[in-house]
Design a protein around this nucleic acid. Structure first.
Length: 887
RNA sequence: GGGCGAUUAGCUCAGUCGGCUAGAGCACUGCCUUCACACGGCAGGGGUCGCUGGUUCGAGUCCAGUAUCGCCCACCA
């Protein structure tokens, strides 16, 4: 902004300033004037770019969002005032299961990727699907139609979200938004995947995966939840094979999953366990089925657990997978992708004889839960259940959004290398974690823990319908078999593509599924596979090279600490693989909002407070004030009381500003580019100089705090200074400013007040954008949010330095005068006949420098000062005029 | 089992390099119709800084141990 345009020196201060209506008023002005519009005509060094977390639009916003997005906004505003051109886009996360479910329920449709696209399709319902018994059959539609409906629905959600964000005063450039399912995001996700594939970082493998039987979908390590579940140890004998081939002595194992007996491939005990050492290498027979399995030794077997020997099934849990892989055991799966026991009797059971087959057939088609009951009955019948099942509670793996325990099934999936099976890559990622600046720093430990603990590559394919498809087809051989080993990759120029409705280059749609033709990959990518690319999406990677060069790597990733293992980690990974760099230089982790019972606020707990209500009741600045008090990384209690305090602060700013400006201008010709309405040569009085010295220290503190992403500290210091400024300084100079001591001292007071006001407003601007903009508009040109952040160096450069002790002693003596009046239950206007100040010589000198201000503010007639020793107690003896003389 | 964080007034929280009698706001008590603000102001009561040791002239702060709460992670038969 220009600094030499003429400035009106006559403030236009409303007679009765109020907070009501400021959001609407300034929201419109900011939009109209493009206050937060990003101007790319800057160098990379001049730009500060933020990788804003895209909120999930299918959910609803709650105070936790308001909390963390406010934190980011204070940083954005600070950087903007420091002269940075802030790149601050907003994304919407409409990818993934929550949106899929919402679209299904809202429109009464179901996605079926095998169906062709229907032009101009209209859904049967529009948010009015009957529920209960009247609930109609869903209409099945193609993936492309489904995605179109998603776009339609989320567009409405986005408007609601944007309005809330605008009301909160986020200084986002609303002309730059993206959605994680929009074409650009799909293109970026598919292009990045093709690059990963070409570099050998993505691969497909047939392997055991954690499988949710309800969603019929593979689940990645990062999406797991452990839940304490009731279970029971079943003590079951395996049978040694006697020399004559008959049944020998039993070996008891304890298992929580007896239904998997038919899937048993070995027994295992610890190599040092003397009880079982003689058995290693020998074979035993399983109960019920009599299948022969070997007894093996492995260090993971825990002699303390159960009977110290375990059965290995394919697959009961992830330990089974480790054993199976490391000891190269056979695969004997009996659980299908629907979570039921396979209907066809497996070969190894058929080979074990008619009894085995009969028993298996009793289980076939049952869910694992009911199969367990049936197996227990069979064991009882054969006398092979030793005692009764012993109930326990144990942690069981769940998909974080799922309702039934995960099963482990073998299937073909896409994986992305993430260091889980590759020490070199893992070390490189750990180094990236060290390069990144963490706020607060201790959060890096979570990244390190997670990265070091990875035990496999990232499973990125999902057997869902709604999401970014893999840009891949497979040839169909002459015999009609799909050849997964020779995928046909999409041309980058064609992206985004949907292999379920687009044909690969060189093929025709009629060849889909035909011998000699092609078949599309039916899966979609994990939502994190798209979300991990938000920096690339936002900065226009591969789409807008100029923008990308100016904004990537970005400066800041704000996010919750609970998704370090998912979002943060995967974003670092993708950037490392694609660009060989960090995606950003800083990350700021925000805490959670806890309800008064110290529980995390979440929809499922039913303890959510809606933000609209809060904004309406307390005002945006007040809500922001509460949020900004939450330090980085620290969980914060939801506290409407703090919002009331924020509101009080805003009102105080209005009134104190009104007062300071009502005293008039000094008429000085000032350098408005930084001091704004004060000529340093006019500031002459010791108390004024002392206040400005304190103010300079405040600017230093607030700036250092903000530079270290500690917005909460910057606010706390500024607020504390401001209240003291109102209670002490304003009261002390009031009389002088009105002219009690003559023109020169009055001018000094007025100039100091205006200088301090200008500085304080700007220090508050990142937190209280509305009220500071309002006050700024009374006497300053342009938006405060594009004004210059106060500079302590510039304040020092004009040599307006004073002795802070003057301020301190003057406040202390005035405090004693007030105390005397209060204790004697007299009005603060009561005149004081005489005060006697006992203090050290040094402090008395300081007092003398502000003596006139103190006597004026305290209505003191006569002052005596008495010097005392350094160790003696300082006192002020106050003698009020008699009560009858007061009238 | 491993890691990280927290524990300071009734409540929510500051307390930076170890340094005067441990601070703020809310709540509470009393007072003041004060010419910017009653959506205000002034003053006051309220704390063995989770516990136990140690280092130090001196510990809320540093070290060791311990308890409780929370979060993250773990191969949970």
């Amino acid at each position: 902004m220009s600094t030499d345009e003429p400035v009106s020196t006559t403030p236009t201060v409303p007679a009765k300033p109020a907070l009501e209506g400021l959001e609407a008023k300034w929201g419109a002005v900011w939009e109209e004037q493009g206050t937060y519009r990003f101007d790319r005509d800057h160098t990379r060094a001049e730009i500060y770019s933020i990788d804003t977390p895209p909120p999930t639009v299918s959910g609803s916003l709650h105070v936790g969002h308001v909390f963390s997005y406010t934190h980011t906004d204070t940083i954005a505003r600070f950087q903007r005032m420091r002269g940075k051109e802030v790149f601050y886009p907003m994304g919407w996360d409409d990818n993934g299961l929550p949106t899929e479910r919402r679209v299904q329920n809202f429109y009464g449709v179901q996605c079926d990727p095998s169906l062709p696209y229907l032009d101009g399709f209209e859904p049967p319902f529009n948010g009015d699907v009957p529920t209960g018994k009247k609930k109609p059959q869903s209409v099945h539609i193609s993936r492309r139609n489904f995605v179109e409906l998603c776009d339609r629905l989320t567009a409405e959600d986005e408007i609601v979200f944007e309005n809330l964000w605008r009301g909160l005063g986020l200084s986002v450039d609303w002309s730059m938004t993206y959605a994680t399912i929009d074409e650009r995001s799909q293109r970026v996700a598919q292009r990045a995947f093709l690059h990963n594939l070409q570099r050998g970082e993505a691969y497909q493998a047939e392997a055991p995966v954690l499988w949710d039987v309800d969603f019929k979908c593979a689940v990645a390590q990062a999406e797991l939840d452990d839940r304490e579940m009731p279970g029971a140890y079943h003590r079951i004998p395996f049978h040694r094979i006697a020399a004559d081939g008959g049944v020998g002595d039993p070996i008891h194992i304890e298992t929580t999953r007896p239904e998997l007996l038919a899937a048993c491939v070995a027994l295992v005990a610890h190599p040092d366990d003397e009880r079982y050492q003689p058995l290693f290498g020998t074979s035993v027979r399983t109960p019920l089925y009599g299948v022969e399995v070997e007894v093996r030794a492995h260090a993971l077997a825990d002699p303390e657990k159960g009977s110290g020997i375990a059965m290995i099934c394919t697959f009961g849990d992830t330990t089974d997978v480790v054993w199976w892989r490391e000891m190269q055991l056979p695969t004997r799966s009996i659980v299908g992708i629907d979570g039921r026991i396979l209907r066809d009797t497996p070969d190894w059971i058929l080979a074990a004889g008619p009894d085995a087959v009969t028993r298996y057939e009793e289980l076939a088609g049952k869910t694992v839960k009911s199969a367990q009951g049936a197996v227990v009955e069979q064991l009882r019948a054969t006398g092979e259940l030793d005692g009764e099942p012993r109930p326990i509670t144990h942690p069981v793996k769940f998909y974080e959004k799922g309702d039934r325990p995960l099963e482990i099934v073998t299937s073909r999936q896409w994986y992305l290398r993430n260091g889980g099976r590759d020490a070199e890559l893992r070390d490189a990622l750990l180094r990236r974690g060290t390069e990144l600046a963490w706020h607060p720093p201790y959060m890096q430990a979570r990244f390190t823990n997670w990265t070091e603990g990875l035990n496999g590559d990232w499973l990125v394919s999902r057997q869902r319908f709604f999401g970014v498809p893999f840009p891949v087809w497979y040839p169909v051989t002459a015999d009609g078999e799909i050849d997964h080993d020779h995928p046909i990759l999409a041309d980058e120029a064609r992206l985004p593509i949907d292999p379920s409705s687009d044909a690969p280059t060189g093929f025709d749609e009629s060849q889909r599924g035909q011998p000699g033709g092609f078949a599309g990959d039916p899966d979609i990518m994990d939502t994190w596979a798209t979300s991990s690319l938000t920096p690339q999406i936002a900065t226009g990677w591969g789409e807008d090279p100029d923008l990308f060069a100016k904004t990537f790597p970005m400066d800041l990733r704000p996010q919750g600490h609970d998704i370090i293992r998912t979002w943060l980690f995967s974003t670092v990974l993708r950037s490392h693989l694609e660009h060989g760099s960090l995606p950003w230089t800083n990350t700021a982790l925000s805490g959670w909002i806890l309800d008064p019972d110290r529980k995390k606020m979440s929809k499922s707990q039913g303890n959510v407070v809606t933000p609209d209500h809060l904004l309406a009741e307390h005002g945006a600045d007040a809500v922001r004030y509460w949020a900004a008090n939450g330090r980085p990384g620290t969980d914060t209690a939801f506290d409407p009381g703090q919002m009331k305090v924020g509101r009080r602060l805003s009102i105080k700013l209005l009134n104190a500003s009104k007062f300071a400006l009502s005293l008039g201008d000094t008429g000085a010709d000032t350098d408005r580019s930084f001091l704004l309405a004060a000529d340093p040569s006019e500031i002459t009085e010791p108390l004024d100089l002392a206040m400005i010295t304190r103010l300079t220290a405040l600017v230093d503190e607030a700036t250092v705090a903000f530079e270290g992403y500690d917005y909460a500290r910057a606010l706390e210091r500024t607020e504390s200074f401001f209240w003291n400024f109102c209670d002490e300084y304003l009261e002390l100079v009031k009389g002088r400013a009105y002219g009690a001591g003559g023109t020169v001292p009055a001018t000094s007071a007025i100039a100091s007040l205006r200088l301090a006001l200008s500085v304080l407003l700007r220090l508050f601007a990142p937190f209280l954008p509305y009220v500071t903009e309002e006050v700024w508009s009374w006497w300053q040109p342009g938006s405060i949010h594009r004004s210059e952040w106060p500079s302590a160096d510039k304040l020092r450069a004009v040599s307006i330095a004073g002795d802070p002790l003057v301020y301190e002693v003057a406040s202390a003596v005035l405090g004693e005068v007030r105390k005397a009046k209060t204790e004697q239950k007299r009005s603060l206007r009561t005149e004081v006949a005489r005060i006697v100040v006992h203090d050290t010589a040094l402090r008395l000198d300081a007092f003398r420098a502000a003596r006139a201000d103190v006597t004026e503010a305290g209505r003191v007639n006569e002052v005596e000062v008495i010097a005392i020793d350094d160790h003696a107690d300082a006192t002020v003896v106050v003698t009020l005029v008699p009560p009858d003389a007061d009238a």
